[in-house]
Design a protein around this nucleic acid. Sequence first.
DNA 1: TTGTATGCGTTATCAG
DNA 2: CTGATAACGCATACAA
Lengths: 337, 337
Amino acid sequence: MNIEEIARRSGVSRSTVSYALSGKRRVSEVTRRRIQAVIDELGYRPNATARALKEGRTRTLGLVIPPASQRLTDMQLGFVASVVDAAARADLDVLLSPSGGEHDRSFERMVGGKRVDGVILMEIRLEDDRVAHLRHTRLPFVGIGRTSRPDEMSWVDVDYEMLISRCVTHLADLGHRNVALVNRSAELVAAGYGPGHRALAGFTRTVAERELYGVQTCCADDAQSGVTCVERLLREHPDLTAIATINEAALPGMYRALDQAGLSVPRDFSLIGVAARHWAENLHPPLTAADVPADELGARAVDLLLQHIADPDTPHRHHLVSPPISLRGTTAVARPR
Amino acid sequence: MNIEEIARRSGVSRSTVSYALSGKRRVSEVTRRRIQAVIDELGYRPNATARALKEGRTRTLGLVIPPASQRLTDMQLGFVASVVDAAARADLDVLLSPSGGEHDRSFERMVGGKRVDGVILMEIRLEDDRVAHLRHTRLPFVGIGRTSRPDEMSWVDVDYEMLISRCVTHLADLGHRNVALVNRSAELVAAGYGPGHRALAGFTRTVAERELYGVQTCCADDAQSGVTCVERLLREHPDLTAIATINEAALPGMYRALDQAGLSVPRDFSLIGVAARHWAENLHPPLTAADVPADELGARAVDLLLQHIADPDTPHRHHLVSPPISLRGTTAVARPR
DNA sequence: TTGTATGCGTTATCAG
DNA sequence: CTGATAACGCATACAA
């Protein structure tokens, strides 16, 4: 059933039906009523595809997420949820593209096929082919995360460098002299994943400033890796009294390893990090952490994207958040092991 | 840039370009080469919207998820990931609709606007308006979950009744006589959420069969609620020695409450449940649980949906899984408190 | 082996 | 206030 059918049954032309629906030109009250009655009776809804073809826009946003195979972190899930939510508030749908590498089929379909009016890109690398590609196509897009050239695009991001710096400062203030950074996976960091690099930069800088002894290690994004990673750290660096981390997924394992090493948190060992609030609160004891406002970032990303869609010449804008550290149960004054 | 432009620049007609691309009729090698060269040079990709309008299908699957505001459980996230993955393998995209209630705008857009070739429905209630609506529109759909009339649709589901029954049996075998069921949220159960009702049925039945004392309670889907819920259970039912649950999100809080009550798991108190494997393994100690194979279910749902799309008259099919309980660290022989 | 013409369902312009 | 009609970009039946 299409607009033609409604028109016929209402005894009017297709254009009148269209205008009755859109309100873009006056339609007499009686015919409007008659049309509406037919529409209600048949349950007619305009075909979105035909409309998109005619209007040149799909009323759809693309969301590029990390490949589904690797489980999304709680923070990433928060981004997805808030993007979908914000889009729904603007009556827009969200098309998902699970694409990590550069020449991904679903990404290509979405962008090349003009399936969306704009794209939100997650898990951006310092050098990211997808960014180059999107810039070239002139399709509006916004990053949750940024490349090494911040001015080339609009983005929202978490200031990992600042946050890890604050974490180290907090540990130093508590008297910790030997601290470690547990980063994201080696693959991710090797691929130029921004947060990994920026966290390391913040760690290195602050360790130097406070004249601490610092060690950095990568760790795969899962609990088991968290266990082995912390076991190794404790073994190879017996003086360690604190860990800072940006690796949410490894945290449960890190807790477990500390527990099994007979170290009580925070009495014997301090733990601090950057994480989604729910994640931090759900750990036991709850993690002292900079709570990333995933909701706000996702909503902001959608806002920025909508601006670019409305006016492609909108200058690039950026939104860098550095939420304060919420003191919970996992940091305390240093105590030699 | 469109197919017309490619045709002009290649000195052929639009249809020849189209056929060169689709391979649906012979095109001489030379012209094919020439066309391909132009396409490569301009980076042309057929417009997906126009193609969808012409072909009458969108190459897109709709995935209806619980409203993003309420955080998805790990299991639900697993479903989403596996659906997206399976769809990508079939070169299909996934459109997300965060819709809980009946008259949701995004759901209506997706279904009424014919934006998708088929729908996968999550978090189905025993009586679900969306199911009725989809049946009425004759749009192919598959449930992850099922209504009270299993034969009215195709679905995949977890046999919560069976699984909770097995959990209770396991507890009874260990000598537990006073056990509790921690269900999903009261709102969800009141709304007729299937797993909540079926878990309760399995619990009630098995408690009776084994002549145990059983108590059931709802609990909101978050850690804090898990804490208060277990605190209350321990207070009001001092003889309780074990809990079975299907509430993933509450589990961290349940652990915490037991810990704070001075009860060591599993020595003083047993805990068992139904959960995604990663979730169970990440808890500390790892939860003895029936591991829901979210990946398999999501992939199966896509399979079923593709069959219905290919042939709308395919009879309804069902896939009910009841994975075995993985013994981990949280159940032991009953010890009176 | 290739070209022409039609229609998918809308919206919007032009005419009345 | 309303109707006829031309696009939107593509795929395909029909001609040649």
